[in-house]
Nucleic acid binder design. Structure first.
Length: 487
RNA sequence: GCGGAGUUAGUUUAGCCUGGUAGGACGUCAGCUUCCCAAGCUGAAGGUCGCGGGUUCAAAUCCCGCACUCCGCACCA
């Protein structure tokens, strides 16, 4: 049975996955959440899987950039101008509306959202527009930018918390390419925090003001998008793609042949991404790559596929895959005066960029929801995480404390704890301790009993099947290592 | 930001209408039981009753403001 949002958040709060930030204070703001010990364990293991399946598999570089970036970066990127909504506010009831949408709907006039604010005001007064709720009059149009501004140093020089991690990658590209012996196509990856001043953050990890992204920017020669060495690795990988019609399940190879995906280059990365998510334990049958229409795409995107997964809250966008063309490098080159062109063989090119922008928090939520189940037959709640993602790999338990079992258990624990995430527990009924381990997703439990004293064997209990088998203490290390290994 | 519903221990919830010592269940901890799947028994800890103000001799309870959470609208990874 699949669990709902309420069950997931209850588990998160009770078992240390995540909880609200600053919760002891009344002025705690919405949209900020913290990961507890279990959440950090899951997140770290998830990111290790991401590195294995994408970064290392494709021989990408990984960087770690500043979260605060200077104003010029966002002038060049377009965020100062485009990452802001024109809004109008009713002077009487205080209701706020998107100025461009309101004008399009009531006055039938289309003004681009990036237009000068005076244009909005002009139409509003010409058409005599009033608040649809209370008929009050509108104040002047304003721009609400979703970037958090910060002041640097005593003079408070303007800068911003980055609204997406990738700007570091674009800005760093010339140095990385020169010093790290770059060749196209070159993937540069980054994990880090981004910040967006959402108007209405909601649903814990699903819409945050401060959130984690794992982004990959692949720099490529736009004239060689059909020339992908390792395409054969994923050409038979099946993915679900939705365009205007119903989703279709086809292989990456077929998707390119039929033109659903524009080229092998994009198909290759969608294939890698699908293989990665399959290994997170998310139910891949409930996923789709949805090709975005013109109006849905971000302002910098040429072609965009969102990787979406069905959860109890509806379809949830986990990854945005955007073909950003030369938008970013061209603008940073113009603004900075730096050269961003590189040699690809004999050819001098300004690389294009394909981006795989993953929302980590949303991914972790989805993993939890898809992994959590209620086992009515055995009256237990089980978090069936993939073993390699579990915050606790193995619980080490003494069946009873006396007769030297406690001491023996401590020995086994000491033997294991540097090699994996082991959790020692001596107290309470054995069944209760197994249930507790089930809830944090520990795939294995080792129990020291009376027979252990006689023959140096322990029982190894499997979370999902509840089956037990006896294992020699001398073999525990290798048995556990095999069972919790990354695929 | 708007509209609606909420906020009492780690979780879930009673008490609020009708103001007067905040209570249960689960969980946690300790002990007994020496035991392989939330058993039982004994005991304990754990509460700024979301925050601030007002009314009152007295506020979890009545009034006002704010914050947060959830559901819709709009926006997004």
């Amino acid at each position: 049975m699949m669990m709902d949002y309420e069950s997931v958040i209850k588990l998160a709060l009770e078992r240390g996955f995540y909880f609200p930030s600053c919760e002891v204070y009344a002025d705690a703001q919405a949209g900020f959440w913290e990961y507890g010990p279990s959440g950090v364990g899951l997140k770290n293991k998830f990111l290790e899987l991401w590195r294995r399946e994408l970064v290392r598999r494709d021989a990408m570089m990984e960087i770690d950039g500043s979260q605060i970036m200077s104003e010029s970066v966002f002038e060049a990127s377009g965020h100062l101008e485009n990452f802001a909504d024109p809004i109008i506010k009713c002077t009487k009831c205080g209701a706020t509306f998107r100025a461009d949408r309101m004008i399009a709907e009531t006055a039938g006039v289309n003004i681009p959202e990036g237009a000068d604010l005076a244009e909005f005001d002009k139409i509003i007064s010409e058409k005599g527009m009033a608040c649809p709720k209370c008929k009050g009059s509108f104040g002047g149009a304003k721009r609400f930018n979703m970037m958090f501004g910060v002041g640097i140093g005593p003079e408070g020089v303007g800068a911003y918390l980055r609204p997406e991690t990738c700007q570091s990658i674009f800005v760093d590209f010339p140095r990385l390419y020169k010093t790290m012996r770059g060749r196209l196509p070159l993937g540069v990856a980054q994990v880090g925090k981004s910040f967006r001043n959402e108007i209405a953050p909601r649903q814990s990890l699903l819409r945050l003001r401060e959130f984690y992204q794992a982004e990959i920017e692949v720099f490529c020669n736009p004239s060689r998008l059909g020339d992908v060495d390792r395409f054969s690795e994923i050409q038979d990988t099946s993915i679900r793609i939705q365009t205007e019609a119903d989703p279709v399940l086809i292989t990456c190879g077929q998707a390119v042949d039929s033109g659903i995906i524009p080229n092998k280059f994009v198909a290759y990365y969608l294939g890698l991404l699908a293989e990665f998510y399959e290994k997170t334990g998310i139910d891949i049958r409930k996923s789709r790559f949805r090709r975005l229409g013109e109006k849905e795409k971000a302002f910098y995107a040429d072609v965009a596929f969102d990787f979406e997964v069905e959860t109890s809250t509806g379809w949830l966008e986990l990854v945005a895959c955007n073909y950003r063309s030369d938008y970013d490098l061209l603008n940073h080159a113009k603004k900075s005066g730096e050269k961003f062109e590189v040699m690809d063989g004999e050819e001098k090119v300004l690389p294009h960029v394909f981006e795989i922008s993953m929302g980590i928090d949303r991914s972790l939520y989805t993993i939890l929801e898809h992994s959590l189940r209620r086992d009515e037959k055995n009256d237990r709640t089980v978090l069936s995480l993939r073993p390699y993602l579990s915050p606790v790999h193995v619980g080490v338990l003494s069946l009873v404390k006396k007769d030297g079992l406690k001491e023996k258990t401590d020995e086994v624990y000491l033997q294991l704890r540097k090699k994996c995430d082991a959790f020692l527990d001596h107290s309470g009924a054995i069944g209760r301790r197994y249930r507790r381990l089930d809830e944090v997703g520990a795939p294995l439990a080792i129990t020291v009993d009376h027979q252990t004293i006689k023959d140096n064997t322990v029982t190894l209990r499997m979370r999902d099947s509840m089956e037990q088998k006896r294992v020699k203490i001398s073999e525990i290390d290798s048995v556990v290592a095999t069972l919790i290994a990354y695929p």
